[in-house]
Nucleic acid binder design. Structure first.
Length: 235
RNA sequence: UUUUCGAAUUA
């Protein structure tokens, strides 16, 4: 079971549906495994969801007798990240329980479409249901604001995030840098950039492209060399 | 052992 779950995770990451189906087939032959493991069924559904095969994922979902919160979340997240938000909402509403991950999955889906009003509605909704937003929630809010590109909305969201978290990790930092670049404030981006300790390639790239986009080609190149001096490989 | 989060790149 451990091996099969591991293989399914790999197929999901690689979006390799053909190999995933082969693993599925082999798992089915071992009748003892099939009905016994909820984790295995969940890993299967997630593999299909990540490969963009939501029809099959739902088929598995319907077929299994026992479901937990993770099963529901996998389907919600699958539809949300393929942009089928109506279906994501349908399962979200039907689910017996909605936890932090359910809310975050839906939020991320709307954030990707730049639907800031829906994002706002959902984050109110989670508060009303006594679900505490976390840094993933914050990232969804910030990246939605980045797509809108409205400086005041962006700053307002940054303010709320600051209040809740104070210090930023790399991912939240990248999202904020990107947001300020797209809202027209290179300076604020740079302040955040300088305050992040473990810069990774994505964070550098976010800052570099922001500079380039605003016509600071020379400063972008300068950062590009500095990144390599600090031992990071450009990709 | 399974579910949610950041940049750029193609059509």
């Amino acid at each position: 079971v451990y091996t099969i779950v591991g293989l399914l995770m790999c197929c999901g990451q690689l979006k390799h549906a053909r190999f995933g189906k082969a693993v599925h087939g082999r798992a089915m032959r071992k009748i003892t495994l099939v009905s016994s493991s909820l984790i295995l069924s969940n890993a299967l559904m997630d593999m299909y969801a990540k490969c963009g095969e939501m029809e099959i994922a739902v088929k598995v979902f319907d077929r299994i007798g026992e479901r937990d919160d993770i099963s529901w979340n996998i389907i919600i997240a699958g539809f949300a990240s393929s942009g089928e938000l109506d279906l994501a909402c349908r399962f979200f509403d039907k689910a017996p329980r909605r936890d932090l991950i359910s809310w975050n999955s839906l939020l991320a889906g709307y954030a990707r479409q730049g639907d800031l009003t829906m994002v706002a509605k959902l984050s109110e909704g989670m508060l009303a249901n006594n679900v505490r937003p976390d840094r993933v929630t914050a990232i969804a809010l910030v990246s939605a604001a980045a797509m809108i590109g409205e400086f005041n909305q962006g700053r307002c969201i940054h303010g709320r995030v600051l209040k809740a978290f104070g210090i930023h990790d790399v991912i939240l930092g990248s999202a904020l840098i990107d947001m300020y670049c797209k809202c027209g404030s290179i300076d604020r981006s740079f302040v955040i950039f300088n305050n992040i300790f473990n810069k990774d390639v994505t964070l550098w790239t976010t800052m570099i492209t922001g500079l380039a986009f605003h016509g600071f080609g020379n400063r972008a190149l300068e950062l590009f060399s500095r990144m390599q001096e600090e031992g990071l490989m450009p990709n």
